[in-house]
Nucleic acid binder design. Structure first.
Lengths: 332, 332
DNA sequence: ATGAAAGCGCTAACAT
DNA sequence: ATGTTAGCGCTTTCAT
C-alpha cells in the first residue's frame, strides 16, 4: 500500500481510528492486547503518521524557530545546538533560518515561519528590522546577543562593554599603548557597547582611541578575509602594539595577515578575539578571547520559550558571566 | 482576531474561500479588482496561510531532508548551504538533521522526516545503517561523499582513492619516506578508498605503510583534538617526515601538536588535510589539502531530487574533479 | 472569473 | 477500554 492512513491501520487491526491514534501517542488507556494488534498492523503496512494532519488538528504550540545571520560562523552553530538539543529532548520542532545579514531574506524566512505556525522565536545577533519583530506579537520572542529596549522581550547577553573594557585594560597593563580596535560596522547595541568598553579603557589611560577601523557590513560573511585585509591596511602606515577585535574569525584573519608580514604575535603585536570558538585553542598562536557561553545561551532561550507565561517585564535580561581567556596571542 | 483563517478573509473581502486560495497562490485567473479586495482583507486581518492545512490537502512533493553526521564541521555546512540555497530558490522546504554518528539519533531523525512526508533524502558521509536507507523505497535518495553498491542510489563523490594517491605520491616526490596516515576508523567505502590510495603510493615506492594510525570512532566529533593527540603519540616514538590526514580538522590539530613540540612545518614535517574548508588558507602554516567542491555537491544533489524520475540505474555515479591545493604545510 | 461542496488524515469530545 | 463523529484550514473539482 502506497500511503497508508490511520484508517487503513484501524481496518487491518480491527479497531477504531481513534484507538490507533491513542496507540501512536502512547496513551496508557489502551489494553495490552489491542495495542499489540495495532502495532502489528502499523508494522505490516509500514505506516507513518502524517504530521501535517496531526498538527492541523491539534493546533499545538510545539514549534520554535531560530534566526541567525550566518550559519557558517561556528559561534552561531553552537547557540543553535544548545537550543536544538533541548528541542529534540522535549519533543519540540525547530526551524533554523539564516538571513545572511539580508533584510529581504529575513522577511522571507519570517513569513515562512508564520505559515509553519511557529510559536516561539529566537533572534540571534542583528535583526536588521526591529519593525519585523514587533509584528510577532502573538508569539514568544527571545533575543540572544541582542538587546531589547522596549522591556518586553527577554534577552540573553554577556556584559559586552565590561568584557572588552577588562580585556583592553589588561593589554594596557601589559604595556600596550597603540591599541587598534577592529569591528564590523557597529550597528547594534551590542557592538556599541563593545566599542564603548574599548574607548573607556583607552581614555582612562589617556590613550588615543580614534584609531579604530571598521569593516563594512557586506564583509560580515567573510570575517576571516575582513580581518586579514584590515590589518594589512593598518600596518601599511602604522605599527600597533595590540589589536582588539570583535570576533574570533576577524582575529584569526589578523593573525594570518601579521604572519605573512613576519610580524610576531605576541612579541611584536598582541591580538584578541571574541566568542571563544573551539578552534581558538588550536590556532597558532592560540587566541586570547572573550568567552561567550553559547550552548548555555541556547538552552536558556529554550526555557524562556517553553515558559512563555513568565512575566518578562519584571526580569527581561539575562546577563551571563563572561571571562576572557588568556592564551598565547597576547604579551605575557 | 487571533488566528484568522481563509474563511475570515473571504468573509471580509466578500468572496469565496476558493477565490482567496487562488490569490494566495498567485493564480492568474482572478480579476484585478477581486485580487485587491482580497489582498486588503489579508493585510487587515494579518492573515497568514496555515501550511499544515495546505500541505495536508495537496500531498505535495516539495519537502527534502538532508542527514549529516556533524553540523559543526564546516565541511558539512557548505554542502547543506548548496542544497538549501537551491531549495529556497525553487520553493522547496528542507529539513536538516544531525546524527552525531549515532545510529539511534539517525533512526529518530528519519522517523521524524517520514512523518513530515519528506520526499527526497540526501545522506552525507556515513550512514551507520544501510538497512535504514533501504526502507526508504518510496522516496528519492541521494548520497554525497558516500558510495552505493546496489546501483540504485545516485551518489556524488570525488575520486577519493586517486586524490590521496596523488597527494602521497607528491610527498614522496619531494623526498618524504616515513609518511604517516591519520584517519578516523575506516568504516565506509570512502575511507577505505582513501586508505588504498595512500597504500598504493607507498607500496609502489617500496615504503612501509603499516604505520598508519587510526582514531577511534567516538572521537569523530572532536577531530581537532583527535589529530592533536594522535600526532603527540606518534612523535613520542618516531619522527615522520610527512603526515597525510583524512580531514582538515585532524590536520589542524596535528599542526597545533607539532607547534607545541617546536617541530617546524613544513621544514621538518609536511602535513596535509582533506576537504579544503575555508579556514585552511588562513591557518599558520596554510594547509595543503584535497579540495571537495562542497557547495556544488549540494547543488547536484538538488537536481537529482527534483528530477526524481531519471533512470538512476544507467548513471548513478557523479564523479567530481578534485584537485589538491598546494599551500605552505608541505615541503617545497 | 467566481462560488459551492467535498475531503486530505488526523485528534478530541463524547458516547458506550 | 473502545467506537462514533465532527471538524482543524486548506485546495480542488465541478458548477455557474
Amino acid at each position: 500500500m502506497k500511503n497508508p492512513t490511520i484508517k487503513n491501520v484501524s481496518a487491518l487491526a480491527g479497531v477504531a481510528p481513534s484507538t490507533v491514534s491513542l496507540v501512536i501517542n502512547d496513551s496508557p488507556k489502551v489494553s495490552r492486547g489491542t495495542r499489540q494488534k495495532v502495532l502489528d498492523a502499523i508494522e505490516e503496512l509500514k505506516y507513518s503518521p502524517n504530521s501535517y494532519a496531526a498538527s492541523l488538528r491539534q493546533t499545538k504550540k510545539n514549534t520554535f524557530g531560530i534566526i541567525v545571520p550566518d550559519i557558517k560562523n561556528p559561534y552561531y552553530i553552537e547557540i543553535i545546538q544548545g537550543l536544538k538539543d533541548k528541542c529534540d529532548k522535549y519533543g519540540y520542532m525547530l526551524h533554523i533560518s539564516e538571513t545572511n545579514y539580508d533584510i529581504d531574506k529575513e522577511i522571507q524566512e519570517l513569513n515562512f515561519m508564520k505559515r509553519m505556525r511557529v510559536n516561539g522565536y529566537v533572534f540571534v545577533g542583528t535583526s536588521n528590522d526591529e519593525h519585523l519583530v514587533k509584528e510577532i506579537t502573538d508569539s514568544m520572542v527571545v533575543f540572544i546577543d541582542k538587546i531589547d529596549r522596549t522591556g518586553k522581550i527577554p534577552y540573553i547577553v554577556i556584559d559586552n562593554k565590561q568584557s572588552i573594557y577588562k580585556l583592553t585594560s589588561y593589554l594596557i597593563n601589559k604595556g600596550c599603548k597603540n591599541i587598534y580596535y577592529i569591528s564590523q560596522t557597529p550597528n547594534t547595541e551590542i557592538l556599541f557597547e563593545r566599542l564603548a568598553g574599548y574607548e573607556d579603557a583607552m581614555l582612562e589611560n589617556g590613550f588615543n582611541c580614534k584609531k579604530n577601523v571598521v569593516i563594512s557590513n557586506d564583509l560580515c560573511l567573510n570575517k576571516l578575509d575582513a580581518g586579514y585585509n584590515c590589518i594589512k591596511n593598518i600596518i601599511r602606515h602604522d605599527m600597533p602594539d595590540a589589536v582588539v577585535t570583535t570576533s574570533d574569525l576577524i582575529a584569526l584573519g589578523v593573525l594570518r595577515g601579521l604572519h605573512e608580514k613576519n610580524i610576531n604575535v605576541p612579541n611584536e603585536i598582541s591580538v584578541t578575539g571574541f566568542d571563544n570558538i573551539d578552534y581558538t585553542q588550536y590556532s597558532i598562536p592560540s587566541l586570547t578571547t572573550v568567552n561567550q557561553p553559547r550552548v548555555q545561551m541556547g538552552e536558556i532561550a529554550f526555557s524562556y520559550l517553553v515558559n512563555s507565561d513568565i512575566d518578562v517585564s519584571l526580569n527581561n535580561k539575562v546577563l551571563l558571566i563572561s571571562d576572557f581567556i588568556i592564551r598565547e596571542s597576547v604579551k605575557k
